[in-house]
């Protein structure tokens, strides 16, 4: 396993327990995945502010991959997946589906814009 995927796995292992207690804390951003789009596909966040990304799928298995922050998740239908995320750098960062899901898979992508409001 290379460094990138190790980092992803570690990130998920560390972050999944946080999701269970997220209701009391950080805001939850629900991201719906379906063939072949994320809704919303453009998400604006503040640098340093922790949010919970909650993923749901309405049709089949999708993936969420945000390589700039080594964040990834499997999104199974009927099983909402939560990931705690604290962006530590400002800018525009692409995310995409990384589980092949069909003809529009290559276009299934979005963008997280992190604003530095410090």
């Amino acid at each position: 396993m290379n460094a990138y995927w190790k980092k992803c796995l570690l990130c998920l292992l560390l972050l999944t327990p946080l999701a269970a207690t997220a209701n009391a804390g950080p805001p939850v951003i629900v991201i719906k995945a379906s063939k072949f789009l994320f809704q919303p596909s453009k998400i604006e966040l503040k640098k340093g502010q922790t949010v919970i990304l909650e993923f749901t799928s309405s049709d089949r298995m999708h993936g969420f991959s945000l390589p700039d922050f080594a964040v990834r998740a499997d999104i199974e239908p009927g099983k909402p997946m939560r990931v705690s995320f604290t962006p530590d750098k400002a800018g525009s960062f692409a995310f995409r589906c990384d589980i092949f899901c069909g003809d529009g898979h290559e276009e299934m992508a979005g963008e997280i814009i992190v604003r530095d409001e410090g």
Partner: peptide, 9 residues
């Protein structure tokens, strides 16, 4: 990786 041009393992 941003374009998923990888093999996970």
């Amino acid at each position: 990786a941003k374009w998923d041009w990888t093999t996970r393992d």
